[in-house]
C-alpha cells in the first residue's frame, strides 16, 4: 500500500497504490462489484448477501491502483 502523498529520496512522488475495486462472483455470475475510494478504512471490511443456487466456487477479486490484481476463491457445497 502506498498513499500517493510520500516522496522518495530524490523528491519524486511515489505513485498511489491502494485497492480501488473489489468484486465477488459465483460461477461467473456477479454478486457485487464495489468501487473503493480512499475514504474506505484500512483493512477493508465488506458484508453482503448472495444467492447460491447450487454447489460451486466463489471468486473474490481485488484491483490495485498499480495494476496488480489479487484473487482468491472459496468452495461452497449446497447439501
Amino acid at each position: 500500500m502506498e498513499s500517493g502523498q510520500r516522496k522518495d529520496d530524490d523528491g519524486n512522488i511515489i505513485p498511489r497504490s491502494i485497492i480501488n475495486r473489489f468484486t465477488a462472483d459465483f460461477k461467473g455470475q456477479n454478486v457485487i462489484d464495489v468501487t473503493l475510494e480512499p475514504a474506505i478504512s484500512t483493512n477493508p471490511f465488506f458484508a453482503f448477501e448472495a444467492v447460491v443456487p447450487e454447489s460451486g466456487e466463489f471468486t473474490f477479486t481485488w484491483y490495485d491502483d498499480d495494476g496488480d490484481v489479487y484473487d482468491t476463491s472459496k468452495k461452497i457445497t449446497v447439501s
Binding site: I32, D33, V34, T35, E37, A39, F48, A50, V51
Partner: peptide, 10 residues
C-alpha cells in the same frame, strides 16, 4: 466513499 453495484445473484 464507495459505490456498490449489485449483480444478478445478489
Amino acid at each position: 466513499v464507495a459505490t456498490f453495484n449489485f449483480g444478478p445473484i445478489s
